[in-house]
Design a binder for these strands. Structure first.
Lengths: 128, 128
DNA sequence: TTTAAAATCGCAACAATGTTGCATTATTAT
DNA sequence: ATAATAATGCAACATTGTTGCGATTTTAAA
């Protein structure tokens, strides 16, 4: 099992991971719950938290709630590698609106209503 | 007042708008509450919701909560103009992980730990 | 300016979600 | 097999999001 990300192998965690592997897209908490035969709300909460910390999954944010998805890249407990026009500083908690050039997204066929580019990290001020 | 976005002018709303104008960066709900002399939680909630609907402010999403900021562009009740690698379809509610070329963000001085590029709209399937 | 219709406010109440502590149970390594 | 360590499940609580409704305020028309 891929559980060798320093995550202890338990039946519940394996079941949750299985769900993620079977999902093509990001899934919401409710979708996860709906697909579990039985579950404890708190345990699931902690499982997702751990998976995120260990770099196994990452959060996908949108206005009406979070979704979760397997990390496609080499994420670990120190860093998630996924790509904001809003810079969120984990040190000072400020959110900076930074102007950045974003090339045209070639999303032909899609209707784009709103887009968000966000960056987490440490800002200039805190990086001193 | 800028309240001519079809928003009725009330003392409370003016006070909230004033806060936004005085804020250089996006602000959290708690920061708003902290800067109001007195407030009703529900009224504030509805005020923000209205401001967003009318295109006066927009949400800034990050993992540990939402922040809010004035819209810099010509947003209205039909569209917010701000810029995801995750595509959120408002029709089927799916979140697609789309591969997109993102140019280097020239954020020298910043430590980048995690970034998210997200797009809201209607996906190919639903746009038929 | 007065007044009536329409919208907002503020409160109660509740739903959903996030979080911690702790005793019990399961997992891992010896 | 067993002891140390971690995970589980429950209670309890905190935070946030949401609706209904009567009282109040705003707006616009008389």
């Amino acid at each position: 099992m891929l559980e060798k990300k320093q995550i202890r192998k338990t039946p519940f965690r394996q079941e949750v991971l299985k769900l993620f592997k079977a999902s093509k897209n990001a899934i919401s908490l409710k979708e996860i719950e709906r697909n579990l035969t039985s579950f404890d709300r708190i345990t699931l909460y902690r499982t997702l938290k751990l998976f995120i910390e260990k770099g196994l999954i990452h959060e996908v944010l949108h206005s009406s709630g979070k979704k979760y998805a397997l990390c496609k890249e080499q994420c670990d407990e120190h860093q998630h590698q996924h790509n904001h026009l809003h810079f969120h500083c984990s040190s000072c908690k400020e959110s900076f609106c930074l102007k950045t050039h974003i090339q045209d997204l070639n999303l032909t066929g899609y209707i784009i209503e709103q887009t968000d580019l966000s960056v987490h990290g440490v800002c200039k001020k805190c990086n001193n």
